[in-house]
Computed example of a mutant assay.
Amino acid sequence: MDKVLAITGASTGIGAETARQAAAAGWRLVLGARTEARLAALVAELGEDRALAVPCDVREMAACEGLVAAALARFGRLDAVFANAGLGASRPGLDEGDPENWAEMAATNMLGLAQTARAAMPALRDSRGQFVITGSVAGRKVLKGSFYGATKWAANAYGYNLREALAGSGVRVTVIEPGMVDTPFFDEPKPQGLEAGDVARSVLFALSQPPHVEIHELVILPCRAED
Rank of each mutant, 00 (worst) to 15 (best):
V4R: 03
T8F: 06
G9P: 07
G9E: 02
S11D: 01
S11R: 01
S11W: 04
T12E: 12
T12M: 12
I14R: 00
I14W: 02
A16L: 02
E17F: 02
T18C: 04
T18M: 07
A19C: 00
A19T: 02
A19Q: 05
Q21T: 07
A23V: 14
A23G: 12
R28M: 08
L29G: 09
G32N: 11
A33W: 05
A33C: 12
A33P: 12
R34F: 15
T35N: 15
T35M: 05
E36Y: 10
R38T: 11
L42N: 06
L42Y: 07
A44N: 13
A44Y: 13
L46F: 10
E48C: 12
D49H: 10
R50G: 15
V54T: 15
V54S: 14
P55W: 15
R59K: 09
R59P: 04
M61Q: 07
M61H: 14
A62W: 12
A69R: 11
A73V: 07
R74K: 09
R77H: 06
L78H: 03
A80Y: 04
N84T: 03
G86Q: 04
S90D: 07
G93F: 14
G93S: 13
D95W: 12
D95M: 09
E96L: 12
E96V: 09
G97Y: 08
P99A: 10
N101L: 01
A103N: 08
A103H: 09
E104Y: 01
A107S: 05
N109F: 01
M110S: 13
M110E: 14
L111R: 02
G112K: 05
G112H: 00
L113I: 03
Q115R: 08
A117D: 07
P122N: 06
P122C: 08
R125A: 15
S127C: 05
S127V: 06
R128E: 13
G129M: 13
Q130E: 13
Q130N: 05
S136G: 11
V137A: 08
V137P: 09
A138T: 09
G139E: 04
K144N: 06
G145T: 12
F147S: 02
F147I: 01
F147R: 00
Y148N: 02
Y148D: 07
A155C: 11
N156P: 02
G159W: 08
N161V: 00
R163D: 06
E164F: 03
A167L: 11
S169G: 05
T174H: 07
T183Q: 00
P184Y: 05
P184Q: 01
F185N: 01
F186S: 09
P189V: 05
K190G: 00
P191L: 02
P191H: 00
P191Y: 01
Q192V: 11
G193H: 03
G197N: 02
D198N: 04
V199I: 14
R201I: 10
S202P: 07
S202C: 15
V203K: 00
Q209A: 12
P211H: 10
V213L: 07
V213E: 08
V213Y: 06
L221V: 13
R224F: 09
